[in-house]
Structure formats: C-alpha cells, structure tokens
Design a protein around this nucleic acid. Structure first.
Lengths: 244, 244
DNA sequence: CGCAAGCATAGTGTATACAATTTCCGAGCT
DNA sequence: AGCTCGGAAATTGTATACACTATGCTTGCG
C-alpha cells in the first residue's frame, strides 16, 4: 500500500515529463496533502532520487525548499521527515490563517469581476455536488481550490502568498487531527455565503464568515488531550540540565 | 568600496568561525539590510564560494534559502541577484506587516512579564540615545531589534515567524526607497507609546499605535512617481509578442 | 535473559567534474 | 556607423565520489 505514489511518479517519468526540483516539491506537497505521505514518513535523498530519476543534488534542492515551506523537517545528519505539527502549532496556524484570510476576503469584497465570481461559484457548486454524491476526496479538492483561488486573487499579493502557505499548513494538520468518527468536515453553505458577501461588497461580513468558517473547521478537529508527552515533561523535567 | 564586506567575511573565516549555509544566509541578509549589498547586486555562486571558503554545494543551499526568504531573485540559468521589490510590492508588504504586527502586539498587550518589558524599554532608550547623538545606523539597529523582539515574543509563533520575514522585507524596501533628503526616519515617541499600551494591557490601542507607526514610516518613503519604466511599457508595448 | 560494546549499513555533508546555458565582446558585413 | 553572427568566457545545472555521522543489529558479557 505504500508503493502506489511511487508508481504514479515513475509512470509520469516514463511518460517523458521534465523533472526538476519544482516537480518534486509539487509531488511531495500533493502527496502530503492527500495523506499518501503521512506525517513522520522518512524521505531519504537517495530513495527520492531513484524514484524521480535524478541525482541527490536536485532532491536536496527540493528538500530545502520543502523545509522552507514547512512541509518537512530537516535536521542535521538526519533523514528528512514529513512534518507533524504539534497541537499548539495547529492552533496558532489556524489563528494566523483566520487573520490573513479574513483580510484577503475583506480586500476582495466588491472587487471581483464577473468572470472571477462565476468561476468561484462554479467551484462552490462542484463542491456541493461532490458532497451530495459522497465523494469526499473530490469535495476536499474543490474546497481547497476555492480557498487557493481566493489567495491567488488577493489584491495584496504578499498576503496572497502567505495565505497559500497557510492553506497548505492547515490542510496538513486537518488531515493529521481529523476526528476519525467524522466522515466529512463539510460546512454546509459557508462557501456560498462567503461568495454572497464578496458579490455584495460587504468586506466585514466576508471577514466574519470566513472567520467563523475556519473556527468551525478547527472545532471539528480532535485537539483535546495533550497526551503523555507534556505530562512526562512536567513529571520528569524537574532539573533541566542533567542529561548532557 | 565594494570590497569591504568581503574582507569582513574573510576575516571571520580566518578567525576560525564555522561556515555553513546558515552563516552565509545570515551574512547576506545582514549585508542586504545594511545596504552593503544594494538591490540588483550579482551573487555568483563561485564568487560567494571563494569568499566564504566553501564549495558551490553549500552556497547553492544558502541561495535557495535566501530565495525562499524573498531576499534574492533566482531565475533559471541566471545569476542570483539581490531583490529589488517594485513600488506595488512595497505597498503590499507594508500593508501585510501592519496586519500581522498589529495582531502580534494586540496578542502581546498585558502578556509581557516584567523582565521582557524592561528589556524592550531598555532597547527603546538605546534607540533614543542613538538618535540624540546622531548615530543613525545604531538607531536603526536598535529600532529593528525592538520589532524583532516583538516577533520573537509573539504568543502565536506562526505569526511571529511571518512577522520576522515581513520586518526583513520592509527594511529592505525602506533602504531602497528612503528619501535621500530625510536624514532620519525616527518617529519620536512611537515606540515608548507602544510599550505603554503593552504594559497597560490595551490590545486595540497597541494595534492602533503600531499601525500608525508603520503608516508614518511608509509615508516617509518616496513611492510617488512610477518613473519611465511603466510609461515605456505603455508606449512601446503595443504588440506583446514581437521580440522573441 | 538483559544489556552494552562494536561493527556493518544507511544516510547526509561537501567537494568536484562535466554538461548546458547564458552573456559578452569582437569581427565582418552592409 | 550600425547591425548581425560567431565564439570564448562566465555561470549555472546535474551527477558522482568520498568523508563523516547516525542507526541498527549482532555478539559477547554479566
């Protein structure tokens, strides 16, 4: 079961695709997003090189960029691993995204042309359709596409780029901490409501809607118990400088 | 005049410092900040390698990271150059920083312990001192240190990291677009006022003060005329695909 | 049976060689 | 003079070799 994504990639190579560090970054990012590369997965340079048919030089560049993108963890002399953000970081990432995405949609309200608005509404309809026919992966894909598009459309491109990053990071932690019980984290009507605010040029309403949307998403996660880790630290960490 | 920073670096190497990509990143970043490496400066890999006494492998990693940090521009098969953000991007960077730094100080208001507060006030006094004795470089250094410290102290470390990035980027464009006429862009009393708000636990006042501070800073820049570039494009660019 | 030391394996860090590409300059033509 | 067409120099892209570090397993001892 763990070999499938490798086969995908190698098929693409056989098909004659140009391979560069950008492709590796994209593939790994997407595989992480879709949970085909779960957090903690080892990413040895030679292995990646064999998979993509390139040498370690190219892989190394890709890994460096993935590290900058907060997708993987790279520590000296150790294998790169898919990042697994802590619960604290998850909360902070969501808070940051609420701030940034709220500002972006506020800036966007009333500043979309007809074509852009209709493209967004089409995506929203695709999302609803996918949900109604129970195709959760497709629904997630379309939902992500909406937010991603908002980031692209941001009049402030600096904020837009930051939002792109935050969308990726929140997606990763959603996949990580999603309650197994919950089949879907589809929040009925949120996206259509947002698009209404954008159409009607109501920046503060748009900010509110996206804020509530993200808060609701966060509330669907299983972020309760800190588990043993923190307790161990509290119990055993009486004197700080004893080990080394 | 262009050799001085190289000598600095080589002296450091002779002194036995460990060189790694992190050191190169730091050195280049600092040199860009202090305008010893003005925007547009070429950064060939072999040259940097000779300067720092390492091979291109290490330099390349550093350059990749600097690209991710928006400090340099790297385009395929071309020499890396110090980035020179456009006026539009400058405006957008400032807007992004107002948003993020405003949130950070709002979160920080009333949540600083005595030690942290006094450290910030000490920095603020150093800034005033430097200004009064006319030492502008030192004043900038201390001012930067205050903002940088705020980013470090941010309870939300995701926002803190984003703020660190934005401080660097705004500093670069300040250096780029500073009106030559203005000797100093010291905004009397802004920092002490901010620290008061933090001490008195007034988040919204703190957000307001930092927002005004950054707006005032932005207003000191020379961002008016778009110069000939845009005009040339408008006048000569009648048909897009003629050159190549 | 548990445990620690040591060796084999796996993996990263760095330097270097060679290929491919761009850039710059000069010669030659109009 | 101006313009274009080489061609050499400079520079990046990629692969590979070797050294160093970490990891894991096995062996030997208590």
């Amino acid at each position: 079961m763990s070999k499938t994504w490798k086969e995908d990639v190698q098929a693409a190579i056989r098909a004659g695709e140009r391979i560069s560090d950008q492709h590796i970054v994209d593939k790994v990012r997407h595989a992480v997003l879709t949970q085909r590369l779960p957090p903690g997965t080892r990413l040895p340079e030679v292995t990646l090189g064999e998979i993509f048919g390139v040498s370690r030089s190219v892989v190394r560049k890709a890994l460096t960029r993935l590290t900058a993108n907060h997708v993987i963890d790279q520590r000296p002399n150790q294998v790169a691993r898919v990042r697994s953000p802590s619960i604290d970081e998850t909360l902070e990432t969501f808070a940051a995204r609420r701030l940034v995405e709220g500002e972006v949609v506020a800036l966007l309200a009333g500043h979309l042309d007809e074509e852009q608005r209709q493209a967004l509404e089409a995506l929203s309809r695709l999302e609803v359709d996918a949900h109604q026919r129970g195709d959760e992966p497709a629904r997630i894909e379309h939902s992500l596409a909406i937010h991603h598009r908002l980031a692209e459309l941001s009049p402030n491109r600096v904020l837009g780029a930051m939002l792109t990053d935050l969308i990726l990071r929140t997606s990763i932690v959603i996949a990580l901490y999603k309650r197994p019980s919950l089949a879907s984290c589809f929040l009925e009507g949120d996206h259509p409501r947002l698009l209404e605010c954008l159409r009607d040029a109501e920046p503060e309403a748009a900010r509110q809607v996206i804020g509530d949307h993200l808060q609701a998403l966060e509330n669907l996660l299983d972020l309760g118990p800190r588990e043993a880790e923190a307790d161990l630290m509290a119990i055993l960490g009486q004197s700080r400088a004893m080990g080394a």
